[in-house]
């Protein structure tokens, strides 16, 4: 593992340990009160969800057309993190929405596209796990098509929902852009980088095991 890994993990753990204190001391948002504080974890999760998705898609395309194995490992690692951070965003979101909007779930364009993007990443992980030989190409194809699919999902859901107006008014979400918020963003980015590196390491070691078996034969 690279030299920066251990100190960075310590910093990341400390940041996460401190973050609840900072969030607790942050000023209350005026209209939504306490529940708005979910956003300190919800928004960074959603951003990382998106970033991990882009990493996975780009790495898959590069693997597909250049045959670079390290890109495949990167894509595989990123896909699992899409599932993880997507789950964080999709679970914390409704807990906030229950209070802010009065319902758990809205078929709003952002929520629906996130859910469908998340489903593609779950499919990716399932294919990698159960696809057997050749599943690397299969998963890369899925990631490529999944990327191309994002604008279509967005347009179709957006138009579908615009034609059928929502019954309840969804208030525009106010953002509390304070120090604790950016602190959490940094903590999440750090967490993502560390987990990605760790997950890539796992794939590298697996490849090493295969090499060793071949050498033993």
């Amino acid at each position: 593992m690279p030299k920066w890994f251990t100190p960075a993990s310590v910093i990341c753990a400390l940041m996460f340990a401190v973050s609840p204190l900072l969030i607790a001391n942050a000023p209350f948002e005026s209209t939504m009160g306490l529940v708005q504080k979910i956003s300190y974890y919800h928004m960074p999760s959603a951003w990382i969800f998106l970033i991990a998705g882009i990493v996975c898609g780009v790495a898959s395309i590069r693997y597909l057309f250049q045959g670079n194995l390290s890109q495949d490992r990167l894509a595989q690692a990123a896909a699992e993190l899409v599932v993880l951070f997507g789950a964080l965003a999709i679970v914390t979101g409704p807990l906030w929405a229950r209070k802010a909007w009065g319902v758990w779930w809205q078929w709003d364009v952002r929520l629906t596209s996130s859910l469908m993007g998340w489903m593609v990443s779950v499919a990716y992980v399932l294919v990698r796990k159960y696809g057997g030989p050749g599943s690397d190409k299969l998963a890369a194809g899925l990631a490529l098509f999944g990327m191309a699919n994002v604008p279509f999902i967005y347009i179709s859901v957006n138009y579908w929902r615009t034609i059928h107006p929502k019954t309840s008014v969804v208030p525009k979400l106010p953002l509390q852009m304070g120090i604790p918020f950016w602190f959490c963003v940094v903590a999440f980015v750090l967490l993502f980088t560390l987990l990605l590196r760790l997950r890539v390491r796992l794939e590298e070691q697996r490849a090493r095991v295969d090499e060793l078996y071949l050498a033993l034969d």
């Binding site: 489903m119 499919a123 399932l126 294919v127 098509f145 699919n149 279509f152 179709s156």
Partner: peptide, 10 residues
């Protein structure tokens, strides 16, 4: 599993 998430828009 592969097809349905991608086919949702269509």
């Amino acid at each position: 599993i592969l097809l349905y998430p991608i086919a949702i828009p269509v």
